[in-house]
Design a protein around this nucleic acid. Structure first.
Ligand SMILES: [Zn+2]
Ligand SMILES: [Zn+2]
Ligand SMILES: [Zn+2]
Ligand SMILES: [Zn+2]
Lengths: 167, 167
DNA sequence: TCGGAAACGTTACTTTATACCACCGGGCCG
DNA sequence: CGGCCCGGTGGTATAAAGTAACGTTTCCGA
């Protein structure tokens, strides 16, 4: 896993990946500005690392990758950056895996919640529209006199590419 | 926050609690028999500890409570018991809290999935019928060419008893 | 009754996450 | 200008959650 210079992360041409990553970072910056939060260097570095994987990644993996690039950090620093990124809504937390991934849908930052489809093989995550699930949850909660605050809908399985019996 | 949770259902005489717990243990035993699994002493102890809280409880809390009663165990032993209890379907795991609670709906052992309403104040958990949510998830997964394996829907919030602004 | 599988004990370890305290740098008040 | 607050950061240490490895015991069916 040592490459000349750039991110060795997938079958996509490095240049194109770089461009996409830069765009994602730019969008993140925008999100921070809109919420009057500071997109510091550390936060940017951590976000870039998460966005670069195009999958879910654990806090300590981020730590390790940054370390490889010369940025040695304490875990707490990464977690603080992650907290800020979560607050800005530019990443999501995958509860079932204790991992994080970059949000690719701008509308999530305005309160709209998706559901997460997490591949057990490649760690890729799809965010798909909840199609009324959260409304149903609200209704069920109300019927149970329960006041919902945070709702998690996560599905673990296999994505199309990782599915067996297809070639 | 490991001690003395208020029960969602108010104070209950100790004798009655004992009786309820005994019943729960008995039902668990039944479930183990039906699945040809062994309801060993360790598993029974761990289950009793979980069922006694009437709320979600972490593995290390179980460990501590058993230790107080003279049963000193290694973490792995508790986790092995938990695995068996999960397999038998007599407890559920709350992914968003890394905690476990006793199932109070027999029908869950036959594949029917509920959604979980977890109180952030008292740690009580309600299991309510999913009312088609899981079917919706299946549909959304199919539309995304995703093959689901494990699904969970968890809601974190406040139960009726813990709700502010009501007395 | 004996042989293999399941359960358990013990030790050590990994992974995930937070507490605590000091410091720095920019905005703000006097 | 000078002192102060405050959010962000660095560093150390430690808590919390979960697992690997390996040997021993217990159970159960042939
Ligand atoms: Zn998103
Ligand atoms: Zn995949
Ligand atoms: Zn249940
Ligand atoms: Zn409550």
């Amino acid at each position: 896993m040592t490459e000349a210079q750039a991110k060795p992360n997938g079958p996509m041409p490095s240049a194109q990946m770089e461009r996409k990553l830069a765009k994602a970072v730019e969008r993140a910056q925008q999100a921070f500005m809109e919420k009057n939060l500071r997109f510091t260097q550390l936060r940017q570095d951590v976000f870039a690392e998460i966005a670069a994987t195009h999958a879910s990644i654990g806090a300590y993996d981020i730590l390790a990758r940054l370390a490889e690039k010369g940025t040695r950090l304490a875990p707490i620093s990464v977690y603080r950056a992650i907290d800020a990124l979560l607050e800005a809504g530019v990443i999501h937390r995958l509860e079932s895996k204790n991992a994080f991934f970059a949000c690719r849908r701008i509308e999530h930052r305005t309160g709209r919640r998706p559901i997460f489809l997490a591949c057990e093989n490649c760690n890729g995550v799809q965010e798909v529209d909840s199609d009324g699930i959260f409304e149903t949850i609200d209704r069920l909660s109300a019927a149970a006199s329960f006041q919902p605050r945070v709702k998690f809908v996560e599905v673990s399985g296999l994505c199309e590419a990782c599915r067996p019996g297809k070639d």
